[in-house]
Nucleic acid binder design. Structure first.
Lengths: 258, 258
DNA sequence: AAGTGGTCTAGACCACTCG
DNA sequence: GAGTGGTCTAGACCACTTG
């Protein structure tokens, strides 16, 4: 806390400089789990910022999950490790890279098709009748091991020339962001447990009726417009799901009593 | 917006009264998806609160996921439905009730045991050597259909007389909260896809080698202390997982560019 | 140029926890 | 009673978007 020199002319907000500094102290162990962080008053006085700015720094640590506040007591370092790889909206590519594996994909097919009304994909993407979608079917591979089969549908209107510009071995999400400015920020996902059919077992090189995950995912951009509908099958013997549940952002003055 | 009378002497914070009012307008359709919410200025002037208070109301809507802000443009109603039942930290009981089913449980066994060091449960709960845990094994039932088998471990030190006071047919989480003041606020969960063994298939009344989910869950209270370790097996034909991914709480001034 | 959200200040009163 | 976080005020300057 002492050694921090705030740069008051930086474009980086003061509260963010403070947040980063505290985060560093937590990671380095200078601030230990369960111990109180400096109070709003203390930060305010020592760094000569207003209390609201100090408060914003502390609250941002809370919403990151590395701290928690108790009225009348203080703000404390959480014992929960943040650094682990929990599930976010991310492509297979990002997920595998975060996990230390080298991902790539084998293209099975890619096409432009008109989805009949009533089909799941048309429902999920709110397509107009007979609106065209781009459909890409790929085998997802990590470190030369086939992990899953994935079929992605995107409304053609959003990315008309995707099939010309997209190298199907690379990350679709990165391509969408770089070329079309489409940033997926949220996804709804249904996971089922099932058995591999003959097609899947051949592509994934596993015995028929092996246990598999069946994913159905709809992805959204900021504001909630659906831009992607994906169905995929992943190997149960090589793939597992890691979730972190809870951690409500309690903007509820009751503090979340139930 | 017009008809709102703020109660300035209520214990309910002003920002929360405003938030609730806007939430109602969104749910009723008076404020439609994609349309701008009243600006901070507008709320501030019309309701005669400071701009920071108006801002807090709007930001709380953002962190609930029902709105999003764009610098220089405004704050808009998100198209994403919030009302759906997404996965939170909740007991089987709560999950089934939210889904409209009547849950109960059949006790298979309950005991106090000393967990050998090195075992998974001891690791997850950070138990001292030879520390005792309470272990409860139950079949989870929804509307008379057996859904899964669940084995829960809790450090005995936290709830010494749990086995006397807990009706195993009811919600464990509710009992922990009511009797011991233990509020589980977060959980880490690993999900695997597998096949039912003979024991599980008998208890769940499904064929052997049916597809199942295998859950391993560690639950935490505020501050990150682990209080529960659960392993469970759920039917793949009757149970599915619904997740909402993403929705970062961006306390990052960059706005989350990647 | 006008409107918007993002940040910041320097105060204030309150309810809560703890010694 | 001293210290803490929760709420609130009435201003301010900035960067950004849009017409």
């Amino acid at each position: 806390m002492d050694s921090l020199n705030l740069d008051r002319h930086s474009v980086v907000p003061l509260y963010f400089q403070i947040q980063q500094h505290l985060l560093q102290d937590i990671r380095s162990g200078k601030l230990q789990a369960g111990k109180p962080l400096p109070s709003e008053e203390a930060i305010s006085k020592r760094l000569r910022v207003s209390r609201m700015t100090a408060r914003q720094a502390l609250k941002s640590l809370c919403s990151l999950g590395v701290a928690y506040s108790q009225r009348g007591k203080g703000t404390f370092v959480s014992e929960i490790k943040l650094e682990k790889n929990f599930r976010q909206v991310q492509s297979f590519t990002q997920e595998m890279e975060a996990h230390g594996s080298r991902p790539h994909s084998k293209l099975i097919s890619s096409e432009v098709v008109a989805v009949p009304a009533g089909e799941e994909a048309a429902e999920a993407l709110h397509l107009a009748p007979e609106e065209e979608v781009i459909r890409i079917r790929r085998v997802r591979v990590a470190d030369a091991v086939p992990m899953g089969v994935e079929t992605t549908c995107l409304p053609r209107a959003l990315c008309p020339d995707l099939l010309d510009k997209f190298d199907p071995r690379l990350s679709l999400y990165r391509t969408l962001a770089q070329i079309y400015g489409i940033h997926i920020v949220q996804a709804d996902e249904v996971v089922e447990a099932g058995l591999a059919d003959s097609d899947e077992s051949r592509l994934l090189r596993i015995p028929k009726k092996s246990p598999v995950f069946l994913f159905t995912r709809t992805s959204y951009i900021q504001g909630g417009k659906a831009v992607e509908y994906v169905k995929s099958t992943f190997r149960g013997d090589r793939y597992k799901i890691t979730n972190r549940l809870g951690q409500f952002s309690n903007d509820n003055p009751s503090g979340g009593e139930a």
